[in-house]
């Protein structure tokens, strides 16, 4: 009971994220991920340098390097902004690695703002 309560208090699941970002689930309907942190970047090296394990990545980039980067830095969920849809080989790689993919029509700024407002934290630099 207590653990369930715990998750509700400090985390958000994919459904909650899709609701806030008005996003579609491109892949990973059945996967359950708890999100506590968010990273937003188009530069994959930036993602590698500051992202935290299990974070949600907001990006405008849609090639398979995004999945690779997510894999290396243990990103939990990827969401594409500004109505972009993942390329075919990317979608396949995402499925293979079990990384849920979302897509929203919102801009990067708007998407970040909404999540921040709901209390989700960024990945602090260190």
């Amino acid at each position: 009971m207590l653990t369930r309560l715990a998750w509700q208090l400090i985390n958000m699941d994919i459904k909650e994220i899709t609701r806030i970002l008005e996003a579609d689930i491109v892949y990973g309907e059945a996967l359950n991920r708890e999100i506590t942190k968010v990273a937003a970047a188009d530069l994959m090296s930036d993602v590698l340098s500051f992202s935290k394990e299990g974070a949600l990545l907001l990006t405008g980039l849609t090639n398979s390097q995004v999945i690779r980067t997510a894999e290396m830095s243990d990103i939990g969920v990827i969401c594409f902004v500004r109505g972009k849809k993942p390329q075919k080989n990317m979608l396949e790689l995402g499925k293979e690695r079990g990384i849920p993919l979302l897509a929203t029509k919102l801009s990067m700024y708007e998407a970040c703002g909404r999540l921040y407002q709901k209390g989700l934290q960024g990945c602090e630099c260190n």
Partner: peptide, 15 residues
């Protein structure tokens, strides 16, 4: 265009 080449690679490795 692939999201690399921002000049962070080696600094990242060092980190």
């Amino acid at each position: 265009e692939l999201g690399f080449g921002a000049g962070m690679g080696l600094p990242n490795i060092k980190k």
